[in-house]
């Protein structure tokens, strides 16, 4: 099976039922997306497929259609996406384990809604669980990233 992740094409030979998450993590060594629940309850594995936020633990590799972007493809420590920049400035993370998923979901939200209200954020972000409880800072960072992106 072929797949494109962060603009690089890969070929894997696995059970078609294997979730994209495990193809990324164990077959391709792309570990930004995290395993948290395996049943779409936590959002830690969120990636983009053709730009849409998707829980990679729910996508069987045999049914994958589209290009995959992981947090590693969104930005890097040296070349950060505006959302990542806002996350750093706002000192959002505690343990940080959920934050790859939070950032990917937030980036997707801002693609479709450049100036989300608190209510919009509540609707878009509540599928992403943070056990440490960094939600107040996530909310602030999304508003800050939105302002950054609007300034260009």
């Amino acid at each position: 099976m072929k797949l494109t992740v962060n603009d690089t094409e890969h070929e894997v030979d696995v059970d078609p039922a294997m979730p994209l998450l495990w193809v990324l993590r164990d077959e391709l060594g792309i570990t930004g997306p995290k395993y948290g629940c395996g049943i779409a309850q936590c959002g830690a594995c969120t990636v983009h497929i053709d730009g849409q936020a998707v829980r990679s633990c729910q996508v069987a590799i045999g049914d994958l259609v589209g290009d995959v972007t992981t947090i590693e493809g969104l930005g890097t420590p040296d070349l950060r996406h505006a959302v990542q920049e806002a996350w750093i400035e706002g000192q959002v993370a505690q343990c940080g384990y959920c934050q790859s998923g939070q950032i990917m979901q937030a980036a997707s939200l801002l693609e479709t809604n450049p100036a989300p209200t608190d209510d919009d954020i509540d609707r878009a972000m509540s599928g992403n669980l943070c056990r440490c409880g960094t939600y107040p800072r996530i909310r602030a960072a999304i508003h800050s990233a939105a302002a950054k992106l609007q300034e260009g």
Partner: peptide
Amino acid sequence: QCSTCHAYREFA
């Protein structure tokens, strides 16, 4: 999107 979690599943 509903499909964020309810992924398309046909072959698997």
